[in-house]
């Protein structure tokens, strides 16, 4: 393992940049996680917390020493708080070329119902 991947991954984490958009059907979240292979990506939803975590894996020759480093770690992590009207059970994810696209739909609204007005 080169120095690039193993040691630094545990030291600190990077907050990946995201775009978050909302339309009437729900939320779309796009996150940049360059270097993370599919198997290195972890998505969790626990109560109302969505956690995106990924460990990048870069290939390099043995003995590689970095001389200039703008990406200080290879461990990405970011946590978002979801709101009640979103349905974490229905999240769909696509991950391609280091870009994660999540769709978090709104909970299906209960059908509109007529409310009886009691006349007293």
């Amino acid at each position: 393992m080169s120095k690039h991947s193993a040691e630094q991954a545990t030291q600190q984490t990077i907050v990946p940049p995201v775009d978050v958009m909302e339309d009437s059907g729900g939320i779309t979240l796009v996150a940049d996680l360059p270097g993370v292979p599919k198997e290195g990506l972890q998505l969790h939803v626990e109560s109302d917390q969505l956690t995106i975590e990924g460990i990048a894996r870069l290939e390099g020759p043995p003995g590689l020493q970095l001389t200039h480093q703008e990406v200080p770690a290879l461990h990405y992590r970011r946590v978002f708080t979801l709101s009640k009207e979103l349905d974490p059970e229905q999240v769909t994810a696509v991950f391609e070329h280091g870009v994660l696209r999540l769709r978090i739909p709104r909970v299906q609204q209960a059908r509109p119902r007529r409310i009886q007005i009691q006349v007293g």
């Binding site: 690039h4 360059p34 590689l64 480093q69 990406v71 280091g98």
Partner: peptide, 14 residues
């Protein structure tokens, strides 16, 4: 990120 070994220069663009 830029680095190297005695045999090569390695450039990683995120």
């Amino acid at each position: 990120n830029v680095g190297g070994t005695p045999e090569s220069v390695e450039i990683y663009a995120f």
